[in-house]
């Protein structure tokens, strides 16, 4: 659900997003991005590393985070969003990633509103996979989306 900027505040509930990571999705992401690092797509290779098996591309999980922002803030996000992410842990095939967040700060400047959110991607054990600060600018007197 696209949030209305006029009524957005630090108590606003942002719609969460859930994604199941599978090896098929990791392979599809490798195809789409051109990133064929064996740690993502070669189970035999990955099994011999410290990670113990294949892991999702960090940029795939970050894409879920961006999708969370798109679902909540629409075009304001995809047209002028920014993110600052820290990769905290690996996402394995079979993991369910929950993307959740809250509005951290809203600043009004002339006709614009600057929105900052704290967003986290965590796995089914509630372990953080990515922590991130996102920001975007929107028109304060308009609906968005």
């Amino acid at each position: 659900m696209i949030q209305e900027l006029r009524t957005l505040n630090t108590e606003s509930n942002l719609t969460e997003l859930k994604r199941l990571v599978t090896q098929e999705k990791i392979n599809a992401y490798a195809e789409a991005s051109g990133d064929y690092n064996p740690i993502h797509i070669d189970p035999e290779f990955a099994a011999k590393t410290d990670l113990g098996g294949t892991v999702a591309h960090g940029m795939l999980i970050l894409a879920y985070l961006s999708e969370f922002m798109t679902e909540n803030f629409g075009e304001n996000w995809i047209n002028n969003g920014s993110l600052s992410a820290r990769f905290k842990g690996a996402a394995y095939p079979g993991d369910t990633i929950l993307v959740s967040g809250k509005v951290n700060n809203i600043e009004y400047k002339d006709d614009f509103v600057l929105v900052e959110c704290d967003v986290i991607c965590s796995n089914q054990k509630e372990e953080p996979v990515i922590t991130c600060i996102t920001k975007f600018k929107g028109k304060s007197n308009e609906d968005i989306g």
Binding site: K25, A28, Y29, A32, S33, M59, L60, T70, I78, G81
Partner: peptide, 27 residues
Amino acid sequence: DAVDGSKGIYGKNNTVPPMAIAALAMT
């Protein structure tokens, strides 16, 4: 399709998902 992303918002304006640009630039 790979990232389970919504298509409508991009199809409407014939635009590219910005994270796809980021992914290709990183690659």
